[in-house]
Simulated scan of single mutants.
Amino acid sequence: MASGLAALLDDVAGIAKIAAASVDDVAGAAGKAGSKAVGVVVDDAAVTPGYAMGFTPDRELPIVWKIAMGSLRNKFLFLLPGALALSAFAPWLVTPLLMLGGSYLTFEASEKILEVFLPHEAGDDEDDLALSSTELEAEKVAGAIRTDLILSAEIMFIALADVAARPLAIQAAALALVGLLLTIGVYGVVGLLVKMDDIGLHLAQRRTRAARALGRGLVRAMPPVLAGLSTIGTAAMLWVGGGILVHGLEHFGWNAIPHLVEGLSHWAGQVPGVGEITGWIGFAAGSALVGLAVGAVIVGVLHLVHKIGPAKAH
């Protein structure tokens, strides 16, 4: 009886060791995969606050919550099963899909840059004014979830590319962990950003001089911070999307553009003491230029199609 109990305990201990090793594998794979997607995460965190701005303070966090729930649905109902199916049945499709998503990011960024230099069409503003606040909120949330779908797809496929050699169960657990933690992180930061001015107003009404000074500083700082985040988000779209395209071209053996970008990175990395940092900046800048070129072409083609369509109708 005692020997049977000892054998059972040995079996339980063995199972526990296997489970612990699996947890370590999942955590390690998730950490490595998630670090590769950091650029898209920065982009996501920088872009999303704009969708919750312009509403009354009591609606800001509910809007962020709706977008976060939409992001989780995107990841767990569509992207995770799709990524695992690709890994199992069509791994050759991962790189082309990554490049397609990267092209979309460069298009979004290039269009934002174009809007800075060209007069803004009043039609969009008039359409927004014609909507009720409920309809406008629903439209903004839907737009944010669509954008998140692209960014989440990039995150999941970047993560998948890094764990593709692992067993399918480890892939699934790692992708689920990456998706959950990054969603919590991104939308936690977004929620904090959109409420920072309200926190500042609350502090500005406190009795202590230090709290009032901090509150006023937060209120004054938030508009330039949000404007800066918008700029960072646009830049991140360019260098992340361009970097995906550069790696995709290299994957397919089209090495001319990747060699130019890598050459720029190598040249920038010659600075003594900070070579790794300047080398990364050089690669990001080269990737952003590639992204800007591709995005500008896409924007130009779509604007041309948009102009030709009405002309044919007439």
Rank of each mutant, 00 (worst) to 15 (best):
P272I: 00
T106M: 05
R73A: 13
G269Q: 09
I281P: 04
F76P: 03
R220F: 14
V301N: 02
A159F: 05
G295D: 07
M99T: 01
L5H: 12
I145V: 15
A235N: 04
V240E: 10
G31P: 06
A90G: 02
S35D: 11
F89H: 09
L177E: 08
P258W: 09
R216N: 14
G70P: 05
T147L: 09
H120L: 13
G179Q: 04
E137S: 13
K75V: 07
R209T: 14
G295P: 02
R166K: 15
W92P: 01
I170A: 02
V261I: 11
A130P: 00
V186Y: 09
I67H: 01
S35V: 12
T106S: 03
G188F: 05
L136P: 01
P224I: 03
P96Y: 04
S132Y: 10
V246Y: 02
E250M: 08
A172G: 14
V38S: 15
S152R: 05
G39Y: 08
R216I: 01
S287C: 09
R212I: 02
A159G: 06
A142E: 08
R220I: 10
R209Q: 11
W92G: 06
I18K: 11
A20D: 11
H247V: 08
G242H: 03
D10P: 01
L226G: 06
L292S: 13
P49C: 04
S3E: 15
K312H: 12
F55G: 00
E262D: 11
L304K: 10
T208Q: 15
G54K: 09
A122S: 13
A83Q: 01
V163S: 07
P96L: 00
F117A: 07
D124V: 13
A211S: 11
D162I: 07
K75C: 11
P81I: 01
K32A: 15
V38W: 15
L61W: 11
A109L: 00
I184G: 08
H247Q: 14
A288E: 03
A285L: 15
L175H: 10
I184M: 13
E126W: 10
S152V: 02
M99D: 01
V141C: 04
V38N: 12
P224G: 05
L100S: 06
L260Q: 10
H251L: 02
L214P: 00
L168I: 13
M156P: 01
E108V: 14
V26C: 06
V38P: 06
V190S: 05
F55C: 02
L160N: 07
G123W: 07
V189W: 05
L77R: 08
D162C: 05
G242W: 03
L72F: 15
